[in-house]
């Protein structure tokens, strides 16, 4: 990791994910660690996850990136809630 990871970088990435025309993603958490930047969260599709990782890698080419971004389950519910 050569590039400095500071609060400004974190804010820059957060805004990139939100404002990029292909994403509009606000559900990713960034964590600055000693040796890398970690992206965590859940998104609606594998394509979206891959695009997030691609864009951040592109924006911060000298930063080691770790990510654990899941795809939100979209199955039918198995239970209902009684509101009594």
């Amino acid at each position: 990791m050569n590039q400095t990871l500071d609060e400004y970088t974190e804010a820059e990435v957060q805004r990139l994910l939100t404002e990029h025309p292909s994403l509009g993603e606000q559900g990713i958490t960034l964590t600055r660690r000693e040796h890398c930047l970690t992206l965590t969260g859940e998104v609606e599709s594998a394509e979206r996850r891959d695009e997030i990782v691609r864009l951040v890698n592109e924006a911060l080419p000298d930063v080691d990136l770790c990510w654990d971004i899941g795809i939100i389950r979209a199955g039918a519910p198995t239970e209902h809630e009684e509101l009594t």
Binding site: R73, A74, G75, A76, P77, E79, H80, E81, E82, L83, T84
Partner: peptide, 9 residues
């Protein structure tokens, strides 16, 4: 999940 279901009774 795809949706939640609430029963209003």
């Amino acid at each position: 999940q795809a949706y939640s279901v609430f029963h209003l009774g």
